[in-house]
């Protein structure tokens, strides 16, 4: 697991794509953050909004939406590219189990996303310089963002085990995650579909309402995707 983790981190740090995506994410988030801060300053005295609700929660929501595109673009370089250039044979001929390979890759992707989440957290924490913010809710929101990024990463890794076209992997992952955002929002949604939607779970967690149901949602879907990826890698020995 460590071998793939170190290798992926070296590759991500050496990849211009990863740095460009990180820069774009931070630029867009900073822009949105400043706009919301501006609006907050304009209305706070009239309607008495607190900065957690007015700035930080929307910042996390926007970050989750931007990561929706960034994680698949980073994750597409995983198993699908390796299948394409023959490097998957190197992994499958090693003593590492498919589980170790999948988790090594997952942790590497998450480790790369961690600075993006921490920068977002730093941005939100900077509000404390001029306003009274609820710190536990601030950190709970960052944790929700981490869970969301982890779910994206798990889904992307699973989809990358299914084919050998990195761009198709990225497109499929973006599509799948978008569907999860939209599905819970649909008027027709109910029951399972409503539960499957990310938005409600994420919004509650980002607001600082840590509850087992929402945590379970991210864990169930994330672990499910990683198990599916493990199964698919194992299956690729048979097909």
């Amino acid at each position: 697991m460590k071998a793939l983790l170190y290798k992926d981190l070296i590759q991500l740090f050496a990849s211009p794509l990863a740095w460009i995506l990180l820069a774009i994410e931070q630029f867009v988030l900073a822009w949105i953050f400043l706009l919301q801060l501006d609006q907050f300053q304009a209305v706070q005295t009239r309607i008495g909004l607190n900065p957690n609700q007015a700035v930080i929660q929307p910042l996390y929501l926007n970050a989750a939406l931007i990561l929706l595109f960034i994680v698949p673009l980073l994750g597409m370089l995983g198993f699908s590219l390796e299948r394409r250039n023959g490097a998957l044979d190197l992994l499958l001929s090693s003593p590492a189990s498919p589980t170790a390979l999948v988790f090594g890759r997952f942790i590497a992707l998450l480790a790369w996303l961690l600075p993006a989440i921490l920068l977002c957290l730093a941005m939100a924490t900077s509000l404390a310089l001029g306003a009274a913010i609820d710190l536990p809710r601030l950190f709970a929101g960052a944790f929700a963002l981490l869970l969301c990024a982890a779910l994206y990463a798990a889904l992307t890794i699973w989809l990358s085990t299914l084919g050998d076209q990195p761009l198709a992997t990225a497109a499929a992952a973006i599509g799948a995650i978008l569907l999860l955002w939209l599905i819970g929002d649909s008027r027709a949604a109910g029951g399972v579909f409503s539960w499957l939607g990310i938005e409600a779970h994420f919004t509650r967690l980002a607001a600082g309402d840590l509850n087992a149901g929402d945590l379970g949602y991210f864990l169930a879907l994330g672990c499910g995707a990683l198990l599916a990826a493990t199964f698919q890698l194992q299956r690729s020995r048979e097909t």
Binding site: A3, A14, E82, G86, A87, L90
Partner: peptide, 23 residues
Amino acid sequence: PERPPLYPELRVDEYLRFAARLR
């Protein structure tokens, strides 16, 4: 394998360290 399974972004020693760790 038929095509050497190299990672273009890695240096030779980094790649061999990865292969050794993997094995």
